[in-house]
Simulated scan of single mutants.
Amino acid sequence: MINENRRERGLTLIEIVVTLVILGIVAGVVGRPLISVIESRTTIGEAASRQADIDYALGRMASEIRLSSDTETVECPAPPPTDDTVLSIGDSEYSLNSSNGQALLLNDEVLLKNVDVFSCKELDPSLRLYQLEIKVPDKSDNYSVRAFKRIP
Rank of each mutant, 00 (worst) to 15 (best):
D55P: 00
L23C: 11
G28T: 09
R9M: 14
T71C: 00
A27T: 09
R128N: 11
T85C: 02
N107C: 09
P33T: 13
T42G: 08
G24K: 06
S119A: 14
D108Y: 08
N3Q: 14
N5E: 14
I151A: 11
G101P: 03
L129Q: 12
Q102R: 13
I134D: 00
A48L: 11
R60Q: 12
R32Q: 01
E8F: 13
D70A: 11
A62C: 06
E122M: 12
F148P: 00
G24E: 03
D53Y: 14
C76M: 06
E72P: 13
Q102D: 11
Y56V: 02
P80A: 12
Y94N: 04
S126R: 12
L96F: 04
L20I: 12
M61A: 04
G59I: 05
N114P: 00
R50V: 08
N97D: 15
P81T: 13
S144F: 12
L20M: 14
S119T: 15
L105G: 02
S95P: 07
L106D: 02
L20K: 01
D70C: 01
I22Q: 00
G59V: 05
R60I: 09
I14G: 02
S88M: 01
V145H: 07
S140N: 15
R7F: 12
S92Y: 08
L13H: 01
T19W: 01
L13Y: 02
A27C: 06
Q102W: 06
S92F: 11
P152R: 09
E72A: 15
L34D: 05
L112V: 10
V136P: 05
